[in-house]
Nucleic acid binder design. Structure first.
Length: 832
RNA sequence: GCCCCCGUCGCGCAACCGGCAGACGCACGGGUCUCAAACACCCGACAGUGUGGGUUCGAAUCCCACCGGGGGCACCA
């Protein structure tokens, strides 16, 4: 006997045999095809599509189990469901693997995709496999390129030179969103700055709408994600104020020039005592007086040496140099000394600020370091900032501020804006923390940017009928090594082309697009994945979109999700879609961890999904993952027990077998009621995404049925119970549910599958109890209980309770001060 | 530094609008079956919601403060 296999004795349930029985049958039945329930209302269920790095792991198992429950639940509930499959198959790991193995990135990529596809199939995800797409297919990226060109036509894709994030390890630029705490999101290397001409999407044009449309998502997206997006966009309202910068001495220097600053505190204009320009901004270079040139250049070189982490350390002392010019305050005509400093950011606001040391901590720190005046203009109870070293930012009354004197902060802000507007030296303004999306990458394995650079015509778009601009098939291994510019640049045959406009010799743009561009519109492509007339068929998108349920990790809260929302809004403005938000409802699944820590190779605490599936079977793993807690919370694999889940599945199958063997007998009202209650509750629980709690109801129903069988309850009630359990369980444990279904006598092979069955409904009559337990409290403490009819009136219930011996005794003859009656469930007696 | 979320039996987690706290699972103890064990089945106990205050007839749930844990942003004017 197999003593080394304690979980699977001879009598135990064998999940592998069950899997082998039903998987081929399902393949033949093609149960998950979108459009199968034509005419029914539609639902679109989507997981954030996977990146093909090796086989599936525990994280995939969780995310897809969750989405699959929703998908199957909606199928059972009569919806026509689209649950598509595809891969986000461009990206760096494939390229790095190709370099190591001397291959083309496609080899590794498509081999991994096949492995994952097979695993998904066995894991019984209800995919419509006919939708399958890969973003690295030319049939897909042709349309990524097409969309890029449409964005460019609208002025939403442009090229500019500026200091950008550079990953020295991956040898490519990165978007702001891909820099986490100064490090490359992918490889962890410290990000440096480089001056480069790069392609951008003008996402900042959509900042307001990205913010305002979040109202539609409230209650349907995790609050946390909405908050993160809100912070990331970072709208701040204030004013633009026009200063005039002029030389300190007139002789030999450039004339006056206007310089605008952004401030959220125009009320403190009279408190400005100096002026600061970002040292790395071209503005600083332009303003610098000849006398200050040498010091400025030296400072600028020092500044550039710093990496982002050093530079952003808030406890770093303030540094800067004078630019030898002054800025004139438009409100009081005061001339302020102008400095270049690295605490002012070149790419936020206008890259220049008015410094109000009394009411801004950074300005105060700088003023103290450079011995500049500190002037309080908002009087409050707080200590003088010049003494305390702490800037006051709260409310107060304006002083030393001419026309603003006596006003409170909020009023003064309004008033200052009016005055500025009257004098035409400023206006109300809004600023965003959000930057434009840097989309070009100096890497090979991505969609080429469909632009040709012509010496005479300049930037020329590749005509639509010449798309896709294909990646060359002949580049492998060493040829893909990063060298600071795209590997494509070294491929002469690929780079040199005729200009589409003048026919003269020209060169292709050698950068490829950020893979987040690919994933910003894939959900639209899924609606018509083989469409050849455009990125998607407008009618198909109208039919399926927006996505009813999106499932994915919170790590994409501000990357993929923000980008996709942006794309959708642009497509809306292009008239291609008629909605502005792509994902109606979002669920963030937690992570699967082990022993309190994220699984990692270095810790050696990884749990191999394949091994778990081999030991316990697909259903036990799916159930274990989902039962462990709410979908959005992390699961510690050390806390769960797939072995006991497998035991329970065995118990379920045995009950079903026993029920199938009974015949005749009377219905049992108790069992009927229990089944109705379970159905009612499970339905509500799944609808509200409390997927784990539904499993507790499955356990209860199983116990009820077991006891009923043992008590000799008649077949009709038992059969209905197993039927309901099988259908509900089909969402969670597809194989076992089919086994139950088959046990009940359904001919699965002829198409009567539990995965084509109809969700049970609970007879409302069975949900009403004949008696309810009424709780009797005295001063809120439980003192007695009694059974009452559900329809009992308040007066009746009050009389009954006040007559209870226990209550009479507790009251001791004194009239109660109050009797709160919530018929039929509760009475609270408050003694006098 | 700023912002957000979470603290319930030994563990993981339940509890609709404030109204019987602890469903369900794990672990634990006992029993039935067995020559014995495994499997299976049955039964069971314990413990009151991080701490302190407030609102209320009544608080796990609402408010305030603190403690502990997790996360986001971070020189953003």
């Amino acid at each position: 006997m197999s003593e080394d296999q304690p979980e699977t004795g001879p009598a135990a349930y064998d999940p592998h045999a069950v899997q082998q029985t039903w998987l081929p049958v399902w393949d033949a039945l093609d149960l998950n095809r979108a459009g199968r329930r034509a005419g029914a209302p539609k639902k679109y269920v989507l997981d954030m599509f996977p990146y093909p790095s090796g086989d599936l792991h525990m994280g995939h198992a969780e995310a897809w189990a969750i989405a699959d429950i929703v998908s199957r639940y909606w199928m059972r509930s009569g919806f026509d469901v689209l649950h598509p499959a595809g891969w986000d198959s461009f990206g760096l790991p494939a390229e790095n693997a190709a370099i190591k193995r001397g291959e083309h990135p496609a080899a590794w990529t498509y081999a991994n995709i096949d492995v994952q596809a097979d695993s998904f199939r066995r894991y019984a995800i209800s995919f419509d496999w006919s939708t399958r797409l890969h973003t690295s297919d030319p049939e897909y990226y042709r349309w990524t390129q097409w969309l890029f060109l449409r964005f460019r036509e609208r002025g939403l894709a442009y090229r500019r030179n500026s200091a950008v994030n550079w990953c020295p390890n991956d040898q490519t630029v990165l978007a702001n969103e891909q820099v986490v705490a100064g490090k490359c999101e992918r490889c962890g290397a410290e990000v440096t700055k480089r001056e480069l001409t790069q392609w951008y999407f003008k996402i900042t044009d959509y900042a307001d709408r990205l913010l305002d449309d979040m109202k539609q998502l409230e209650g349907h997206w995790p609050e946390r994600v909405l908050l993160m997006q809100k912070n990331w966009i970072g709208r701040s309202v204030g004013a633009h104020v026009d200063f005039v910068v002029k030389p300190v001495t007139e002789a030999g220097q450039q004339g006056h020039r206007p310089v605008t600053v952004f401030t959220t505190r125009p009320d403190t204009l009279y408190g400005a005592t100096f002026f600061v320009v970002a040292a790395d901004a071209t503005l600083a270079d332009e303003l610098c007086a000849p006398s200050a040139r040498e010091a400025f250049e030296a400072y600028r070189i020092e500044t550039r040496k710093l990496n982002d982490i050093e530079r952003q350390a808030t406890d770093r002392p303030k540094t800067g140099v004078s630019l030898g010019v002054t800025a004139v305050n438009p409100l009081n005509g005061e001339e302020l000394p102008v400095f270049a400093a690295d605490y002012v950011l070149a790419d936020y606001g206008t890259g220049a600020i008015m410094a109000v040391p009394a009411h801004d901590q950074r300005d105060l720190d700088f003023a103290r370091a450079f011995d500049l005046p500190i002037r309080v203009v908002v009087q409050s109870d707080a200590e003088d900032p010049a003494v305390s070293g702490v800037a006051t930012t709260g409310d107060g009354v304006l002083v030393n501020s001419g026309p603003l004197d006596g006003l409170r902060k909020a009023e003064a802000i309004e008033r200052a804006i009016v005055i500025l507007a009257d004098r035409k030296t400023g206006a109300k303004a809004v600023n965003y923390r959000l930057r434009d999306w840097l989309l070009s990458r100096q890497r090979f394995w991505g969609a080429p940017i469909p632009i040709v650079h012509c010496p005479s015509c300049g930037e020329v778009a590749v005509p639509d009928d010449q798309l896709p601009v294909r990646l060359p098939d002949d580049m492998k291994g060493e040829a893909l090594k990063p060298k600071g510019q795209s590997p494509l640049a070294s491929n002469e045959a690929w780079v040199n082309v005729r200009c589409p406009s003048c026919g003269g010799p020209a060169k292709r743009d050698t950068d490829t697009m950020d893979t987040f561009v690919d994933s910003s519109w894939y959900y639209l492509r899924y609606c018509s994945p083989r469409y050849t007339e455009g990125p998607f068929d407008l009618d198909a998108v109208r039919a399926w979109m927006p996505v009813a349920q999106y499932v994915g990790g919170v790590e994409h809260a501000i990357l993929h999700l923000l980008y996709s929302r942006f794309f959708t809004k642009v497509l809306h403005d292009m008239g291609m879609v008629d909605f502005v938000e792509p994902f109606t409802s979002l669920m963030n699944q937690g992570q699967v961890i082990n022993g309190g820590k994220a699984m990692s190779k270095s810790l050696g605490n990884g749990v191999d999904l394949g091994g778990q599936l081999a030991a316990y079977g697909v259903d036990a793993i799916r159930l274990t993952i989902v039962a462990a807690g709410p979908p959005e919370e992390d699961i510690d694999w050390a806390d769960v027990s797939p072995a006991s889940t497998l035991k329970w599945l065995g118990r379920v199958v045995r009950v079903a077998t026993d029920v199938a063997a009974t015949s005749g007998g009377e219905r049992d009202a108790g069992v009927d009621k229990a089944v109705a209650k379970a159905v009612d509750e499970v339905t509500r629980l799944i609808e509200s995404h409390r997927l784990n709690v539904a499993i507790a109801r499955f356990h209860e129903l199983t116990t009820t049925l077991r006891r009923a069988v043992d008590a000799g309850v008649g077949e009709p009630s038992l059969r209905d119970g197993v039927h309901a359990l099988a259908v509900m369980l089909s969402c969670y444990a597809p194989y076992t549910a089919e086994e139950l279904w088959s046990t009940l006598g359904h001919d699965v092979r002829s198409g009567d599958s539990v995965h084509d069955s109809v969700w049970p409904t609970a007879d409302p009559a069975l949900l009403v109890d004949e008696v309810v337990t009424c709780v009797v409290q005295v001063s809120g403490k439980l003192r007695d209980k009694l059974e009452v009819p559900p329809g009992i009136s308040e007066d009746e219930l009050r009389a009954v309770v006040l007559a209870l011996p226990r209550i009479v005794e507790l009251l001791g003859g004194v009239e109660p001060r109050a009797v709160i009656v919530r018929a039929p469930k509760l009475v609270n007696v408050v003694p006098g």
